[in-house]
Nucleic acid binder design. Structure first.
Lengths: 204, 204
DNA sequence: CCTTGACTGGACCGATCAGTCAACTACAAT
DNA sequence: ATTGTAGTTGACTGATCGGTCCAGTCAAGG
């Protein structure tokens, strides 16, 4: 029982904070160790490489996102379309929270890593893609319920869910670039209006 | 007259290619010089620093994007809403072209730099933000025409244009992450359905 | 012919990078 | 008591980082 060592957790949390606030390549192992109050040797005792650490950081982020964002937004007790509004509100709150300390909007931690590393590291690319797929699945389920209950006209469910993921990520990216939380306030609520119509045969 | 030296241009083009295909931090000055067939000394004769090079690369990208994408899509001779389809088609073609050599979808060169550096380098952040603002302006103008001609019901013009920028960037980012051009094919045409309704007073 | 100055070639710099390693400590099981 | 093992400490390595420096090249202008 007890806490066998919190070292690993400290490394993980510190790495998450630094990498999220800056970037993968910009943050070095030495800096992570320093800020976590850990020595190089301990780092490499727990993680075979910086790359493996990053994969672990991704898991960490995914777990946190699930409980802080997804589980709360995609609550079956909420009417389907309202879940989208909930998602937007929660995401805004989280972004605000992260922006507070450094005064910088940080965007989506998954999207940031994906953009930086997708073309360079296949494992990380795949992991981020899986994360997006999970969000897409939740959205698709929500849309399906909305259509079934008549709250939403028929749409291409898969494409619309994916488009919502894209929009969500795009808004966070834009907010990061403008370094302005208001972008999220302004744009994210329109998530519920994203629609990909069912595709018809080409218009000749 | 003549070509005073193509050295600077070669450095710029090489740097663009390398940075776009990988990332700012991952590509070193030495590698850029090597691939451009230029020596370190020449590099620093033309560019005071790697950061300044990157600013120049951004200009380079912006100029290219303007003539290859924006000028063609936002042609006043095309009906406003059709310009959006045109934008989607052209963007797809360009992405396909860039993906061909390395078999990797590269996403938006501006978005990539923005995501990687927005929190670290204020000048680059501002430059990418300006690029997005330019696209937003073009979209806003297009939407205005569409509304005036009755092709589109009234919407919040500024917010919708910005939402379209976000969606556009989000789709490219997702395509890069999934490493799949079909994502663009599938999602980008829905750009024309993005809508941010005119905001009403809070629902109580 | 001589100077000037843009440009090139390339050695070199200190700092930092990810990663290694052997010695050490603490505790558990035998 | 002894050994095994998980974890810690921190010096160290070779490579690479961005950047500096300067002697040399060359064409244009006087």
């Amino acid at each position: 029982m007890s806490a066998p060592t919190d070292t690993r957790e400290r490394i993980l949390a510190t790495a998450r904070n630094l990498i999220y606030a800056r970037s993968y390549t910009d943050v070095g192992v030495a800096e992570i160790c320093e800020r976590a109050g850990v020595f190089k040797g301990s780092f490499y005792h727990f993680f075979p490489s910086k790359r493996d650490l990053t994969l672990a950081v991704l898991d960490f982020i995914l777990a946190e996102t699930k409980e802080r964002l997804l589980d709360r937004a995609f609550d079956p007790g909420i009417p389907p379309l309202d879940r989208l509004d909930r998602l937007a509100e929660l995401a805004y709150g989280i972004q605000k929270e992260w922006a507070a300390p450094g005064g910088r909007v940080l965007g989506c931690p998954v999207g940031n890593l994906a953009t930086e590393l997708a073309t360079q590291d296949e494992a990380i690319r795949a992991a981020t893609a899986r994360a997006f797929a999970r969000l897409q699945r939740l959205l698709r389920q929500t849309l399906e319920e909305a259509v079934d209950s008549g709250a939403l006209p028929a749409v291409d469910l898969d494409a619309t869910a994916q488009a919502m993921v894209a929009y969500f990520e795009g808004v966070l990216m834009l907010a990061k670039t403008e370094n302005d939380l208001k972008v999220i306030r302004r744009l994210l609520p329109a998530l519920r209006h994203i629609r990909v119509p069912i595709k018809q045969s080409r218009k000749k």
